[in-house]
């Protein structure tokens, strides 16, 4: 299966939840970098496009024992049995062998949304409408990322255009290896509290690999066996338990 081979590098993230204050800088930076359009008329938190979405998690106790934590969730770039890759009927999703990044190619996408039902992280988003910016604001779009049309799925790709730029820069100097400093996703760069570490998980010297091995590190829905490349950290027990598979059960929390 095409998801089985081992990539050259495994780019990943470690997000320190104890440093995340839910400011939303990562989400805003992501939207700017990746030309994610503003909400279409009537779009809501259920139909929006947020490659990086910050969820609020609660400990389930009532006031004042209640506690809140923020979970920034983007595509988790699963490394094994990647749910979305295997289900796409026409190969619009694959894993880049050089970076381990799970792709999503809008021009190939049929818009069947099977990958979205397959993704347990709800990290894939559908373009329910054509993208629209206020007049002339297309002058503020990033030329390194193409704008998606309606009817296709999109999601985080670890700012792959920045990787491409880093490769081009290295190649211009005759090098095949990129300088790690040249490849930092927008959300990582934008985080004011530096809660997100990014890099090659396979490089034992990298900050991200060191942090991913920390005792307080965990991954979301690890029991599903999809080997996500995004790690989370927290010293709070209840926050770490939030990564487990068990579903929420509070009926009150339901939104119609």
């Amino acid at each position: 299966m095409n998801t089985a081979h081992k990539p050259k590098a495994r780019y990943g993230m470690v997000i320190d939840l104890d440093r995340c204050n839910g400011c939303g800088g990562c989400a805003a930076a992501c939207a700017v970098e990746n030309n994610v359009p503003p909400a279409a008329p009537k779009a809501s938190d259920r139909t929006g496009l947020t490659w990086m979405r910050i969820y609020r998690a609660e400990n389930g106790r009532s006031f004042p024992e209640n506690r809140t934590a923020f979970f920034p969730i983007s595509c988790q770039h699963c490394g094994a049995h990647t749910p979305c890759v295997s289900v796409c009927p026409q190969n619009a999703v694959d894993i880049n062998p050089e970076t381990g990044v799970v792709s999503q190619i809008p021009p190939r996408c049929l818009g069947c949304r099977y990958c979205m039902t397959a993704c347990p992280f709800h990290a894939r988003y559908f373009n329910w409408s054509d993208p629209e910016w206020p007049r002339d604001m297309e002058n503020a779009l990033n030329p390194d990322v193409s704008v998606r049309m309606r009817g296709v799925v999109e999601k985080c790709n670890f700012c792959h255009s920045r990787w491409q730029a880093a490769v081009a820069k290295a190649a211009a100097n005759g090098k095949r290896e990129i300088d790690p400093a040249d490849y930092v996703p927008a959300c990582v760069e934008a985080c004011p509290t530096e809660a997100i570490a990014f890099g090659n998980l396979d490089d034992p010297r990298s900050e991200v690999s060191r942090q991913s091995r920390a005792p307080n590190a965990f991954r979301l829905l690890a029991k599903l066996g999809t080997d996500p490349k995004v790690y989370y950290r927290s010293d709070r027990d209840w926050v770490r338990r939030m990564g487990d598979t068990d579903v929420a059960y509070e009926s009150e929390a339901s939104r119609g």
């Binding site: 989400a27 503003p38 909400a39 947020t50 609020r56």
Partner: peptide, 15 residues
């Protein structure tokens, strides 16, 4: 504010 701020206000439960 930028229209992209809908990511924080309308398109997620953040704000």
């Amino acid at each position: 504010v930028s229209p992209v701020m809908t990511k924080l206000y309308r398109e997620s439960g953040l704000r």
